[in-house]
């Protein structure tokens, strides 16, 4: 039980760092496309986001089976089926964000910081939106039976 709780806390911390880094990246790239590049941050944020994504993914994988049996099957499916659907949607969306995170890292290394492509900005914006959706979904499902 202790290790599962610890995994959940670390999963949450990594998700928070991922949200911050990728949101800042999207905003930094928007500025860069308007003529105000920041080469250091445009290289740093994708690397931080990729490390956080990996941590969130691995930790989430470790705690997912426990959630599926103890939380979803034993409680959510009977009392709040909408929360089960929301959680599954979040997990699958996280998978679909994976290739975009990889693309962000590759493109940010290959492109001129002064001229980031629309593909890179699109990746950062899509990952930021997806991660925000996942964080809010995780918070809603995790707060069931609390407030």
């Amino acid at each position: 039980m202790f290790w599962i709780k610890l995994g959940l806390v670390l999963h949450t911390i990594a998700a928070g760092a991922l949200t911050g880094s990728v949101t800042h990246l999207a905003l930094t790239l928007r500025k860069a496309r308007r003529g105000r590049p920041n080469p250091r941050l445009q290289r740093l944020y994708p690397a931080v986001a990729a490390g956080c994504y990996l941590a969130v993914y691995v930790l989430g994988t470790l705690i997912y089976p426990r959630y599926r049996v103890e939380v979803r099957a034993n409680w959510l499916d009977d009392h709040a089926p909408w929360a089960s659907v929301l959680f599954d949607l979040k997990e699958n969306l996280a998978t679909l964000l994976g290739p975009l995170v990889l693309a962000m890292v590759v493109l940010s290394r290959a492109e001129e910081p002064a001229k980031p492509s629309r593909a890179l900005l699109g990746c950062a914006a899509a990952v930021a939106l997806g991660v925000w959706f996942n964080v809010v979904s995780g918070l809603l499902v995790g707060s069931m039976r609390s407030v």
Binding site: A103, V106, R109
Partner: peptide
């Protein structure tokens, strides 16, 4: 380099 990266990630 940039076009190649966009091709690969696409």
């Amino acid at each position: 380099m940039s076009a190649r990266a966009r091709f690969a990630t696409g």
